[in-house]
Design a binder for these strands. Structure first.
Length: 290
DNA sequence: TCCCAGGTCCTGA
DNA sequence: TCAGGACATGGG
């Protein structure tokens, strides 16, 4: 991997296991959108990031090496050995095919608070709608960042900002029945921010137990939060898509979500979360079980 | 009109 | 512990 700055861009050559379509379309994040030139633009913390890929070269617009060290490197999971992970979870033909199909997937290290609220919104919702609600919340309550390629960008609102927001205004963001849950979570997070940001240093069970004390966070959402923002990679969140592919290709049709999760965690081991992402992407892109 | 979406909560056995 | 319905919203 070769990293250098050129013309106000940061360029990384010879990246392996990195495909921006796989990364942004595998359902782990909701704030990235494709541009006409094939690049993706998104918001990470308080920064707008645009990323373009040509084969094994990735180009970040208006990013310098400092930004790479403080933000990009961790967010894009650049220090993880994906070959090793793929080898460890590649235990049969189904997962082998899925890994091949989504070879460029990476599990992003996202902000804990943003991930909590985002997956709270995901309950009984569609991905385009989830993205719209998050965008509405950011535009209504988040800090303005800048204009990029003709579009205004806003940071995801903090707990403080959502706490001040009247319930009706949250409802106007089309959050539906999740509006009160968001408001309640913000009120709690205001005083428990340290706990939330320290969960990655706790055990999986402690994290799960804590997250589920929030209204609107059940088993599935809690596991997504743990996987996508708290580095708990041994968990296997079961949603409709994962249920479909697992029931079709591994276990019986009437197997419960909990049993599917236990089956998968035993099968794929400490990197079950990565296996879940490959399977999710494969199932969704190929309509498995529909 | 009905069905469903990266589910959770509540209720009643 | 577990099944079944309600829940906002919008697209097919």
């Amino acid at each position: 991997m070769l990293i250098y700055e050129k013309d106000n861009k940061l360029i990384i050559e010879n990246v392996k296991s990195f495909n921006i379509t796989h990364i942004f379309d595998c359902g782990q994040c909701f704030r990235w959108n494709k541009e006409d030139d094939g690049s993706y633009t998104g918001v990470v913390k308080n920064k707008v990031i645009n990323i373009l890929q040509n084969n094994s070269t990735i180009i970040f617009d208006k990013i310098n090496y400092d930004d790479y060290e403080t933000l990009i490197r961790n967010y894009f999971d650049m220090d993880t050995d994906y070959d090793n992970i793929k080898n460890q979870i590649n235990v049969d033909e189904v997962i082998n095919k899925s890994i091949e199909f989504g070879q460029g997937i990476r599990i992003l290290n996202q902000d804990e608070w943003e991930t909590m609220i985002s997956f709270m919104i995901s309950a009984n919702n569609r991905i385009p709608m989830i993205k719209k609600v998050i965008e509405n919340l950011s535009m209504s309550f988040g800090d303005y960042i800048c204009n990029y390629k003709g579009r205004d960008y806003y940071a995801f609102p903090s707990a403080e900002q959502l706490c001040k927001a009247p319930l009706e205004k949250i409802q106007q963001c089309k959050a539906g029945f999740r509006s009160e849950r968001i408001k309640e979570a913000a009120q709690r997070a205001l005083y428990e921010k340290d706990i939330i940001y320290n969960l990655k240093n706790k055990t999986y069970d402690e994290g799960l137990e804590y997250l589920k004390t929030y209204k609107g966070i059940g088993d599935k959402v809690a596991n997504c939060i743990l996987l996508f923002s708290m580095k708990q990679f041994d968990t296997f969140p079961v949603d409709v898509w994962v249920r479909r592919i697992m029931q079709t290709l591994y276990v019986g049709e009437n197997t419960s979500d909990k049993d599917i999760r236990i089956f998968a965690e035993n099968k794929f081991g400490k990197f079950s979360g990565y296996a879940q992402q490959y399977l999710f992407y494969y199932a969704r892109e190929n309509g498995i079980g529909r």
